[in-house]
Design a protein around this nucleic acid. Structure first.
Lengths: 221, 221
DNA sequence: CAAATAAAAATGAACGTTCGTTTTTTTTCC
DNA sequence: GGAAAAAAAACGAACGTTCATTTTTATTTG
């Protein structure tokens, strides 16, 4: 048998990694055996080692792939934000974060595996200097908003935006993975509106609040 | 050898559970062996089974003990809150949550183990209906604040307080366990002040804001 | 256009260890 | 001496990994 095409190899690796990921997030890394992975992937035990040197290598390959996907999705989410401090933008960010957590809850479970069993070595970069990254992406918009006097005195846009972003993430992670089951006592929609409202009133100056009044009221539904 | 006194038994169990907890949070549950636990506790392998029927039983005993401790600490934190919606109260809550996360980071790692390897069965109650619990604790204060017109129109105190509480928790967990390393671009003190300020301005009416002006300005440092 | 070739891919038994747990033996102390 | 506690030894099952072998199939050959 001549060498498989690259696409064929990628296909087989995807099958193996899908199986492994499902097992890892269900039982953890060390509770999942190579035999389990082989069985679920419909592949022989020995053949796994034609594609991966070790069990660790499977985990790392899954994470590398997934980090790329999430990075792209986050980029897309930030790309569609024009004015980061506008209430409507925050509200949209919240929805998008919710979708991201929903669509990729596996990813966040892998992160917890990494924290527990690998000292968080693969995911460290996710949260390292989030605020600085936002400053890089929205720096100009932040400065413009400050110049226009859109912000309350003493409110720095980068930390404020970071706080809102983290709050949205935390809200949906608690709901999806930690059994929150409407832990804020509201539907997801209402919770998003409430958080958005708090951050709008909490960060925007009276002048700019007046300007966004209509939008804010609609969002607070 | 006569039967050990109850205190002696509790002492020995504490030694075993301390050892097991340290290993669990460092490597995860399944990556920790009974031999590891015995070695670290300075006890023979077989003797572990004089105290616990299974390895799972050790984990459950650790969690039961710890849930009690955390529950008490949380109760103490809420007990010292007079007016939950006051900026000074929120700021204090933030500090206390920070101390709780710092002093008991083991506990939160155990929670992640539970999510991953035990379907979150032991920790579910932690986040189930948080908002309702606050409504029970602070119900009267919440209603008083609403009656006095302290809150912005459309802001419900229970979800708002829950949001602040969750934000504080999330902030310190990210810092302590996920390699955030000042992810908001501020020191812990500054971050607490910033979050407090946002929630104060985000939830309080103009009238009550004026009343708290002095306190809020001091807190915003 | 088959049939033969060759080498990659897949297999599953087997390796030495380590696992959680049980059983047996030794130690301890009234 | 006797019973409880601790230690040691032993158990079968399961672990990650290896490897000799078989199967598969694109290419070469007649």
């Amino acid at each position: 048998m001549p060498k498989l095409s690259d696409e064929a190899i990628q296909e087989r690796m995807a099958i193996i990694e899908d199986a492994a990921r499902e097992l890892f997030i269900k039982h953890g890394f060390h509770a999942t055996s190579m035999r389990d992975i082989a069985r679920r992937a419909g592949v022989s035990l020995g053949n796994l080692y034609n594609y991966y040197a070790t069990k660790d290598a499977i985990f790392e390959s899954i994470i590398d792939r997934y980090l790329g996907v999430i990075d792209m999705e986050l980029r897309a989410i930030f790309d569609e934000i024009d004015e980061p401090m506008e209430p409507a933008s925050l509200r949209k960010l919240g929805s998008n974060v919710g979708r991201l957590v929903d669509d990729h809850s596996d990813f966040w479970l892998l992160m917890y595996i990494d924290v527990l069993e690998f000292q968080n070595q693969h995911f460290r970069k996710m949260f390292d200097g989030v605020s600085d990254r936002f400053r890089k992406i929205f720096g100009r918009r932040f400065r413009d908003a400050e110049k226009r006097g859109d912000l309350r005195v003493g409110v720095e846009p980068a930390p404020a935006f970071t706080a809102a972003y983290m709050q949205f993430f935390n809200y949906f992670l608690v709901e999806k993975l930690f059994g929150g089951n409407h832990h804020m006592g509201l539907t997801d929609e209402q919770a998003l509106n409430h958080i958005t409202k708090i951050f709008a009133y909490g960060t925007l100056s009276e002048a700019s609040l007046a300007r966004f009044k209509k939008t804010a009221n609609k969002a607070a539904g």
